[in-house]
Amino acid sequence: MVGTAIGAAINGMRPIVEMQFADFSSTALNQILNNAGTHYWRTNVSVPITVRLPSGGTKGSGPFHSQSMESIYAHYPGLIVMTPATVEDAYTMLIEAVGIDDPVVYCEHKYLYYHLKADNLPTEGLPTGRARIAREGRDLTIVTYSAMLHEALAVAEQLVNEGFEIEVVDLRSVKPLDTNTVLASVARTGRLLCVGESFPWGGATAEIIARVTAEGFHLLDAAPQRLNAKDTPIPYHPNLWSAHRPNAKEIARKARALLRE
């Protein structure tokens, strides 16, 4: 499927490949990473494909219909990795993805299908590669993307009652990664928590912490923290699943600990 899309893209088309579940894109890793991802660099001919990955967990979906794969794709050169969190971004960024001359891995969280609605579709969108301050604050920066944005925003609201103002940064795309917006936010708050739904070893949250520590160590008042899913396959049972991924309770616990430091 991805191979044919690459062939068509080299021949002037702009194919969109829908993976049904992000998890299944692992069977196309070779074509995405080694063929699409290397093609422009090797041959000077870009491959304008959009690979749609319905991502993230839902109740009862289990190990093979719940994964978040953005960190794998972001690790490899030659790909753009979009992780929209809102209906508006999902709309404008998908259109943008098709228009971009490079291969785009478009991670659309299934939470967006089920839980979010927009009254009007926008005609203008923030370009990919620019993060958005989803909520302003002064005490702690939570950097997140995709469906975890909504968990983070809920925690931010909750912690207002405890006297904290949390700033929430929606990355929108993990590659390119808008380090400047993150650094500017950390400069305001002095504290950083990164939240992502993918597995904990390495990945987007680790990359953000590495960058902020390297470039903005002096801005930090406390050691930066990260929160990801657990390092096991994604469980089937709703009770286990909701404890496997970062949830509002976990994020709030981690945020409070950081704020007390």
Partner: peptide, 11 residues
């Protein structure tokens, strides 16, 4: 490269 050739032909 087989499927890539197929895609090019489809285009």
């Amino acid at each position: 490269m087989v499927s890539v050739t197929v895609g090019a032909l489809m285009a």
